[in-house]
Design a protein around this nucleic acid. Structure first.
Length: 828
RNA sequence: GCUCCAGUGGCGGAAUCGGUAGACGCGUCGGACUUAAAAUCCGAUCGGGGCUCAACCUCGGUGCCAGUUCAAGUCUGGCCUGGAGCACCA
């Protein structure tokens, strides 16, 4: 065995062997229980970054650990390969998006292989390939048939730079999630998926996911935004038969209404405007239309509005109040109209102050009454000025008042969600075409399933500005209607790429199936994903969409489970010098360089070492160096002892070893096995796993430092310790351990070896340190036998010279004994 | 504004149930080996005080202030700071 560690040589060699022997192929049928480990698949942007390295290493170690524990592990990879960057590259450099994407996939595949990841490449998928998007289109048709996909004219988020609409989830602070430019409102006819049908179950089922972090679940719950309230309908005084319904979570404040606001886009606003106000209202609406989303939604902005000239009648007390329009009312939420109670809502308060609208206190805190002159009172209290409800607690009044409204026919209880339907049309080329046609006679018609896929046209001009390249194809647009055979035009929009990524984890179960989307039995066998690993940035977008898809496909009868990801690990970011690695900051670290200088095993070890997976990880060059040195140390330990190590190790039981130091080492190994196994099992605490590798290595070196020569017992325990270390390290240092295994004469692969077991009796040291405290402060430590009874422990503690001296002349009130740990003497 | 998370040495971070705070590493300092360097190995490394030095002894210390407890990094209440998500959602 070579004395020096040459990772580059070793790694290439074994990567080749694993590929040739198909070491990581996963059979669908096996006696072993299944385990599905999944990383969020990458966008083929060009090169791997350290975030990828961290993500895939974490999942790979989990997959290998589970395999060693006896599971049949599915660990696939693929490419989220539709999307704007490919198209932008095409526009910029004249490259074809397909070529650009394929080249990137090829390069990144090479990098993934260099990292030594245990993927089953036979199951690789790429969402931009017709054999994949055929099924994306097919799934769209199933949702269409179920009534879950529909087209409507709506105010949508428009990104001018990307030249496309965006889903609500893709608008961050009023800006485009991809290019950061300000998003505008446009009115367009677009395709939507009815995710709102699933709002409640998406919320409820979060409780079925104990294996997800609370942070993600809370973010999803907030996004879904369920609220309980009431609809109350108000008659319009000037227009007989006309009503304006509002949604409110505060029906208890109805007696305090002093005006009512509708959104500028409110459907009946023109009818509700009297002629003398028309001009002013129109001007206000035009202005609102022009404003960007970010301006419009800014909370800092002072509120504006104009009266419509009409009035509503409060059905509870007959009071009349004016109707206004103001852009703080949102057309998409509730009914698009708000009943305003300035005294008990801060927004209404601000508005009423500005426009001198009246205020009326209806909720009072009896301890500390307020007339609401300076601010709205939004806490709980007792109803006043509220007719028959006076004196009632407001929490009870909510129910009582809504009940009255329901009884008398002008209101009802209502649950409202913040979640909106998912807008999936994109005016872009590089995506899956939406498989519908528009017939001159028959209207919207789905493309028949046997005509799928609707292929992306290749005869397009990528240099066009302001419209989708797909519209330049001379062959794509015109087609025939599948119903009447007459002329029809194809839908020119493609689907949001988040659709493609909402089902890829299902395709892995049956990736090469060209007859169906996936076989139902196979999907039911492999899913749900046992462990999903990825970035927190997908907490809402991808993870919510995937949950929706799973539920919708279950309802289509395509699968039998309702949550796709049983356990979710959201890994932290990779930082450099305290900030996120980015090209613009120039603080990126290129994985290729690390592979070249130190090898993949060092990269894997380091990326897991310093922080727990969920926390941010600060990259340091010194840290990489340290890990490289450690691997050298491990290599040296093995190579210098190669002649003394046998892989034929009989089971060593407690008491088998005569020498104390050998028994101690045996115990240390068992403790390490136990500790490492538990650390991986409990939330994948790889940082402490790696510190335990180091401790064990240090312990073996220390042991050896005290041995001038080795007899048979020494060689036995040394073999046991080193081989255990190798097996424990094999999921992380995948190449080094494989090479060492073979150099020591091992058969097969170390990665096919069973995980180390520990003996509970040996996974502890032979003696314990008894801590003696006085009044809770440590005063003495005494080495004692592990089996000591509680009485004996107390006796030993009180006999200690130090304790005697410190308790001298004081009264011992009581003594607390914690078995196998400590004695606390309470004195006065 | 609302919701959530986190605050431990010079740094990253350890510390099942409340039971030895600072594992392991990085950095720094000192030493060994070497003509020298690299590599490697050994040792020290929270702060204050005591002792001529050292071993040692002693007091304090996990963002701040209280509380519960024999015992608090860990539990409770109230703050402060930082981060994340949502945000005119009625």
């Amino acid at each position: 065995m070579k004395e020096a560690y040459f990772p580059q040589e070793i790694e290439k060699k074994w990567q080749k062997v694993w590929e040739e022997t198909g070491a990581f192929k996963t059979p669908d049928d096996s006696d072993r229980p299944k385990y599905y480990a999944l990383s969020m698949f990458p966008y083929p942007s060009g090169k791997l970054h350290m975030g990828h390295v961290r993500n895939y290493t974490i999942t790979d170690v989990i997959a290998r650990f589970k395999k060693a524990q006896g599971y049949n592990v599915l660990h696939p990879i693929g490419w989220d390969s539709f999307g704007l960057p490919a198209e932008n590259a095409a526009m910029k450099h004249g490259a074809n998006p397909e070529t650009w994407t394929d080249e990137n996939i090829a390069y990144m595949t090479k990098q993934l292989k260099m990292l030594g990841l245990s993927y089953d490449w036979d199951r690789e998928v790429a969402t931009c390939k017709p054999e994949y998007y055929k099924w994306t289109q097919w799934l769209f048709l199933q949702l269409y048939k179920k009534g879950l996909a529909y087209k409507k004219e709506a105010a949508v988020n428009w990104c001018n730079d990307c030249g496309t609409v965006l889903a609500n989830e893709q608008v961050i602070d009023g800006k485009c999630w991809r290019c950061d430019s300000v998003v505008e409102k446009k009115y367009l006819s677009q395709w939507f998926l009815k995710i709102t049908d699933y709002a409640d179950v998406l919320l409820e089922d979060l409780d079925k996911l104990p294996g997800w972090g609370d942070n993600v679940k809370i973010m999803q719950a907030n996004w879904i935004g369920k609220s309980h309230g009431a609809i109350i309908k108000f008659k319009v005084k000037e227009i007989p038969g006309m009503e304006v319904p509002v949604y409110t979570t505060r029906p208890d404040t109805v007696y305090g209404i002093t005006y009512l606001v509708v959104a500028p886009e409110y459907k009946d606003i023109e009818k509700l405007t009297t002629p003398e106000y028309r001009e002013e209202v129109e001007a206000y609406r035009a202005n609102a239309r022009k404003m960007s989303e970010i301006e419009r939604l800014s909370t800092d902005r002072t509120k504006t509005g104009v009266p419509l000239g009409t009035h509503c009648i409060n059905p509870f007390n007959g009071e009349e109040f004016p109707l206004w329009t103001a852009d703080y009312a949102l057309v998409e939420y509730g009914t698009g109209a708000v009943m305003a109670v300035p005294t008990h809502d801060t927004r209404d308060f601000d508005f009423a102050k500005k426009y001198n609208l009246p205020m009326k206190v209806v909720i009072q805190n009896t301890q500390n009454p307020s007339n609401c002159e300076n601010e709205a009172y939004t806490e709980e209290g007792i109803l006043v000025n509220s007719g028959e409800f006076n004196g009632m607690k407001n929490t009870e009044a909510k129910k009582a008042i809504t009940e009255k409204a329901a009884r008398e026919g002008f209101g009802e209880f209502k649950i409202q969600y913040r979640l909106r339907d998912w807008l999936i049309s994109r005016q872009r080329y590089w995506g899956a075409p939406i498989p519908v046609v528009y017939c001159d006679k028959c209207g919207i018609q789905p493309v028949p399933e046997d005509q799928l896929p609707v292929m992306l046209p290749k005869d397009v001009d990528f240099s066009v500005v302001g419209k989708s390249p797909i519209t330049t194809s001379p062959t794509f647009k015109d087609t025939v209607c599948p119903v009447c055979g007459g002329h029809a035009t194809r839908e020119m929009d493609t689907m949001d790429t988040f659709i493609c990524s909402s089902w890829y984890y299902l395709r892995y179960a049956d990736a090469r199936n060209d007859k169906e989307c996936f076989n139902k039995d196979k999907v039911n066998h492999w899913l749900p994903v046992d462990q999903y690993v990825g970035g927190i940035e997908h907490a809402i977008l991808h993870l919510l969409y995937s949950r929706f898809f799973t539920k919708a496909l279950r309802d289509c009868g395509l699968l039998d489970f309702d949550e796709p990801f049983k356990n979710l690990l959201t890994q932290g970011m990779v930082l450099k010098d305290g900030s996120k690695m980015s090209k613009s900051k120039g603080n990126t670290v290129d994985p290729d360089e690390i592979f070249e200088n130190y090898g993949a095993d060092t990269a894997r070890l380091f990326i897991l070492s310093d922080s727990p997976p969920a926390r941010d990880f600060d990259w340091s060059d010194a840290g990489v160096e340290g890990c490289y040195k450690f691997l050298n140390r491990v290599w040296r330990l093995i190579s210098t002892n190669a002649n003394n190590i046998s892989l034929n190790i009989p089971e060593i039981k407690a008491g088998d070893l005569k020498k104390k130091e050998n028994d101690d080492l045996l115990r240390f190994v068992h403790m390490s096995v136990k500790g490492i196994t538990n650390d991986i099992s409990n939330d994948f605490q790889f940082n402490t796993v790696i510190s335990k590798y180091r401790e064990l290595t240090n312990a073996i070196y220390d042991w050896q430092g005290r041995k001038p020569s080795l007899d048979d017992e020494d060689k036995l325990i040394l073999s046991f310790a080193i081989v255990s270390l190798m097996k424990l390290m094999s999921p992380v240092a995948v190449h080094l351990t494989e090479e060492a295994w073979h150099e020591l004469g091992g058969e097969g692969s170390i990665h096919d070896q069973a995980w180390c077991k520990w003996d509970e009796n040996l996974a502890k040291s032979s003696s314990i340190t008894l801590v003696v405290q006085i009044n809770g402060k440590v005063k003495d430590k005494i080495e004692v036998d592990e089996g000591l009874s509680q009485d004996k422990m107390k006796e030993v503690a009180l006999k200690s010279e130090k304790i005697k001296a410190l308790t001298d002349g004081k009264t011992i009130i009581k003594t607390i004994v914690v078995p196998k740990k400590l004695v606390n003497v309470v004195v006065k």
